[in-house]
Write a protein that binds this DNA or RNA. Sequence first.
DNA 1: CTGAAAGCGCTTACAG
DNA 2: CTGAAAGCGCTTACAG
Lengths: 330, 330
Amino acid sequence: MVTSRDVARRAGVSQPTVSRVLNGVTTVAPEIRDRVLAALEETGYVPNAQAKAMRAGRSGAIGVVTSEIQNPFLPYLVDAITGAARERDLTTVVWNDPDPSNPMAVAGAASGIVDGVLVTAARRDIHGVMTMAQRGFPVLLCNRAPEEAPVDVVTSDHFGSAAASATYLVEHGHRDIAAVFGPPDTFASPARQKGFRQSLLAHGVHLPDNRVFSGATSYESGYRAVRSLFDGGLPDSIFCSSDIIAYGVLDALAEAGVKVPNDVWVCGIDGLPMSGWRSFDLTTHAQDIPHIAAQAVDALAARIGGSRTKPVRLELPTTLVVRGSTNHAK
Amino acid sequence: MVTSRDVARRAGVSQPTVSRVLNGVTTVAPEIRDRVLAALEETGYVPNAQAKAMRAGRSGAIGVVTSEIQNPFLPYLVDAITGAARERDLTTVVWNDPDPSNPMAVAGAASGIVDGVLVTAARRDIHGVMTMAQRGFPVLLCNRAPEEAPVDVVTSDHFGSAAASATYLVEHGHRDIAAVFGPPDTFASPARQKGFRQSLLAHGVHLPDNRVFSGATSYESGYRAVRSLFDGGLPDSIFCSSDIIAYGVLDALAEAGVKVPNDVWVCGIDGLPMSGWRSFDLTTHAQDIPHIAAQAVDALAARIGGSRTKPVRLELPTTLVVRGSTNHAK
DNA sequence: CTGAAAGCGCTTACAG
DNA sequence: CTGAAAGCGCTTACAG
């Protein structure tokens, strides 16, 4: 790799002068400046961001830590985060690391490769980056909302969206409601489960155990759930804790010859683009991804800037998108 | 952040001694060693990978450069690459960057944040990293196969898989075949188009222009294609250049009341897990993701190691997975 | 076996 | 306006 020293030699100046031209901080004589610019051009110099970051104590980059890149929600969030970061002149690196000690992200954080990390990993256990947070490294939890956290949190209102789903079903006359929940070792799923249950309770609707299925946040889980939920006969509707679960539910229902929405309503949460596909046509509570990303990057940037001390906590509302899997006419 | 100097002070030794304990290269007196280990534990020291990399001239990390993270194929590839890299004691960072000058990856490369990059970006124009490659930085193209490239290439055999698709349809008696191709500004789509066309030609089957639709690699593109392909009446089968295109085709056909496979066969290429879902049940040529990832990481590691000079080029075969969207009985 | 020194590629006071 | 010097946090010869 060509260094600023190489460029300096070629331009016949000292290395710091090259640095000055690059950063434009001090005035440089026009003639020297031109020589340096020419040398930069000729050599195709690219600054060594590591050396720069080490010296400056700041990299201008943020990290995104995830552990389940196959979660179909994630690419949309990452894209939005990358875009929001770029608007603030920050670059973004993504670490996909199933290990809860997050060795990659921790190394990146300790190294100053990034100035802060956004944690979008769904699972509860992420002690690696949380240890960094305790040591004062900027960490923001995105779409994870522990009840008590000494760190910044920007998340969709998982509780509220599930509660609203329950209200929606009850208000359309449903009483025999089934639910397929996600895994307990995440934050979003338990919050959604809690919201759904509390809302049903508030409406005086009982959710018997044989109407509940818990499993992974996956198509397969939803698919399997249907068979298990059938034991009590057909419910009025099936609430799915995630859109991807709902796809499995819909497919299993179709396989069993059950008509949606005529025989059963189905709804999900997330608002994945796929939910609008004809195969699914799924009613869902959509997360506001651009908003989440923008708020998360803003909050992390503020934390990095040190302009804030108290942790912020933002729970952004979701939007009900009614489609063919539920039907107001019922 | 706590540095090795802090640890040294705490242990009452010099900073290089801490370094020696960490790297275990030289013998350190047991007693001193224990003091250092204790100090490491107490401080929660994490090495600064940047300083390490700068000094060592090697980071032990590879980068994955992508420009379309929403491509549903990508997460599986990234997961496989991360796993393959970990087995070789390499960490992985992902840059999602739609800019063809790939500023993030180029900066990361020039910085020694990574020792080499795997480029999985689909679009043709990636002059940023290609410039790095010309300067001798290890770059491997993954699932992109320019005819002539002075860099390492590991890819699925896009041409061959599409050619095999054509053969499959023709051998099952189809003559009126339609095709939905992806965009020309990528590598995979044109290769698949070429393979499909040449194979049909070799079988003496004509592919008229009104049986061809070209568009994005997306559900919407497939959905729109169907309307356009209907002008000539129903074809025997519709070949889709990507699974995701096929989903749109299947949905549009269902909407139009056309039965698959009874009225029309549909097949795709990629082998996404979703293709096995009941909604799609799609016959496809599956890419061998674990194999691609392993070979790509191996080849890049060899390039980084400098043990090779000539570029390698690997085109891995795909596997036909027959499902309900085609039917041997027809 | 262990410390003092040099150096990876930068930036930023400090002289001149 | 420009160069020589120091230092970011490491590793690795070089002395002792």
